[in-house]
Amino acid sequence: MASKRQFRVWRGDENGGDLQDFAVEVNEGEVVLDIVHRLQATETPDLAVRWNCKAGKCGSCSMEINGMPKLACMTRMSSFAEDETITITPLRTFPVMRDLVTDVSFNYEKARETPSFAPPAGVAPGDYRMQQVDVERSQEFRKCIECFLCQNTCHVVRDHEENKEAFSGPRFFIRAAELDMHPLDAKTDRKEYAQAEQGLGFCNITKCCTEVCPEHIKITDNAIIPMKERVVDRRYDPIVWLGSKIFRRTS
């Protein structure tokens, strides 16, 4: 079943690089990462690639395949036409280290700036009680494998390096949403924080993050928009205000 197919792989580092052509054998059932491995084992032993689990679980092998941000280990060769040349390039939004590997420390810095879970006061370990329906929304966001494909695709930073300072990106919007929806989180100003410090307002909900997320997390619909709405609650909504006066309910 093996056949030779055409590939173009970007090789280089911060001083420049180019797309190099290779003809590589492809077998039934293989994914793009298999091809990169075959190149390493044959023509280019020092071809740099980051990967780990090869099962779509760790989010290491993010790269751009025919221009689309994807996990190389989950992109099957059968999704391309036989005679199609497949172009493999590193993530564009982050600085390149070498070949297909980029420096993703932007994301780790943003993670560090995002306020952590605040445990409820006076609840001992083992005494946490939460209902399944109350944890489900946050659980969706905890499926995130930190592949940073969403961060890479988001035009706010992809096309505008200067926004990196003020914009945390979709991965950390879902983190903020996760904690805001966590039934026992004790911090109450996560929405304000998302708006003021994470740059939620930069997002124009064009949904590319959702489009590329390999975990199929509905980043925009279930995290970003609800967070924007929560900000609106606090600031502008007359009926919410009235309702809270009348019912004096805490949600």
Binding site: E64, G67, M68, P69, R92, V156, R158, D159, F202
Partner: peptide, 17 residues
């Protein structure tokens, strides 16, 4: 802004909303 995912947007600067 942007026309499609992973296609560059047509603007020099961007402040979103």
């Amino acid at each position: 802004s942007p026309p499609a995912c992973a296609v560059p947007d047509g603007h020099k600067t961007y402040g979103g909303e």
